[in-house]
């Protein structure tokens, strides 16, 4: 991540990392998660699920900040994210 100046508390701040999990067979392909993900992590895939819809796939897994917006905006309870615990989360 680029900063226009170095933040003063850069040593203490840890950017959270998330891991998106998609339950493909529940998805109805509405595209809300893809449209409203603030970090553009997801994209609609070409493959079909059991019901014949196109579920999303994780395109940029490193961008996820664990904000849970995709989880909240999914009407079918098909996507969730959990926090990725890593020691390398401190930005340098």
């Amino acid at each position: 991540m680029k900063f226009w100046r170095k933040p003063l508390d850069i040593d203490e701040i840890k950017i959270p990392k998330g891991e998106v999990h998609i339950i493909k067979d529940r998805c109805k392909g509405c595209g809300f998660c893809v449209e409203y993900c603030p970090k553009e992590v997801l994209e609609i895939s070409e493959e079909f699920n059991k019901m014949g819809y196109h579920p999303p796939y994780v395109k940029n897994p490193d961008n996820c900040l664990n904000c849970h917006l995709c989880e909240m905006l999914c009407p079918d309870f098909a996507i969730y994210c959990i926090e990725k615990v890593e020691e390398e989360g401190i930005i340098a």
Binding site: K28, C30, L73, C74, P75, D76, F77
Partner: peptide, 22 residues
């Protein structure tokens, strides 16, 4: 949620599922 009844009947793009989430 009652997962034995899922997937629910609400259409693609409907907002009632979002109300359920909220």
């Amino acid at each position: 949620l009652r997962m034995d009844r899922m997937p629910h009947i609400w259409c693609t793009g409907c907002g009632i599922g979002l109300t359920a989430t909220a």
